[in-house]
Amino acid sequence: MPAPNPAAMEFLLTRRSRPAKTLTAPVPDRAALRDILTAAARSPDHGKLEPWRFIVLERKALLRLAELVSQMGPELGRTAEEVAKARAQYADAHLAVAVIEVQKPSDKVPPIEQTYSAGAVCLALLNAALASGWGANWLSGWPVHDPAFVARALNLSENERVAGMIHIGTESAAPPERPRPDLDSITEWMSE
């Protein structure tokens, strides 16, 4: 029989992302963040390719990204509302970790599995931050999907893209529980 871990299961059954706009300082110091990153790096990784890496964005870096959003948004055809929303995501943040998907050549591991691994790292990072007592949220948005923006903002190569921006901080307001999927409507049981 397997040895259950009730505390871990309770955490998974009750975990809840915290809206990034409600996260404030203080944020984890580098030692605390290192443990969170270590937990995230234990994600499934077929072929041990490590098709991802981390960029830790501290306050000054986030403010730089906010200004770059203001500058590049209109050049990229974004509306004033889109620019303001994206700018606030960085200007109001105190710490974020960009999970960077790094596609690597492999005869055994197709690109889609490398993408899945990067997504698994995002979720593991989010959950590790929450399990450590911090508030956290996984965001993206138009800036991180724009090749020109990420090349300039994060110095990404052509084989790299942002899988997610994990914002971490102190929760200033507990969010209400939100509706969850109806398990019966999304589950099919096959016994043969």
Rank of each mutant, 00 (worst) to 15 (best):
E58P: 02
R59T: 15
R59P: 06
A61K: 07
L63W: 06
R64M: 14
L65E: 01
A66T: 13
S70N: 14
S70K: 03
S70T: 14
Q71D: 14
Q71G: 05
M72I: 11
M72L: 15
M72C: 09
G73E: 01
G73M: 07
E75L: 14
E75N: 11
E75C: 12
G77P: 09
G77M: 11
G77D: 10
R78Q: 15
R78C: 04
T79H: 12
A80W: 07
A80R: 14
E82N: 12
V83Y: 03
A84R: 09
K85D: 09
A86Y: 03
A86K: 01
A86E: 13
A86I: 06
R87S: 11
A88W: 05
Q89V: 11
Q89C: 10
Q89S: 13
Y90A: 01
A91V: 10
A91P: 02
D92W: 03
A93K: 00
A93V: 04
A93F: 00
A93N: 03
H94D: 10
L95M: 11
A96P: 04
A96Q: 15
A96N: 00
V97G: 01
V97A: 02
V99S: 03
I100S: 00
I100C: 03
E101N: 12
E101M: 13
V102C: 08
V102R: 04
Q103K: 12
Q103W: 07
Q103D: 08
K104M: 08
S106H: 09
D107R: 14
D107T: 10
D107N: 10
D107G: 09
K108Y: 07
K108R: 14
P111A: 13
E113R: 13
Q114G: 06
T115Y: 02
Y116S: 09
Y116C: 10
Y116W: 08
Y116H: 08
S117D: 03
S117I: 08
A118V: 03
G119R: 04
G119E: 11
G119T: 04
A120V: 06
A120T: 10
C122H: 02
C122Q: 02
C122R: 01
L123Y: 09
L123A: 12
A124Y: 00
L125P: 00
A128H: 03
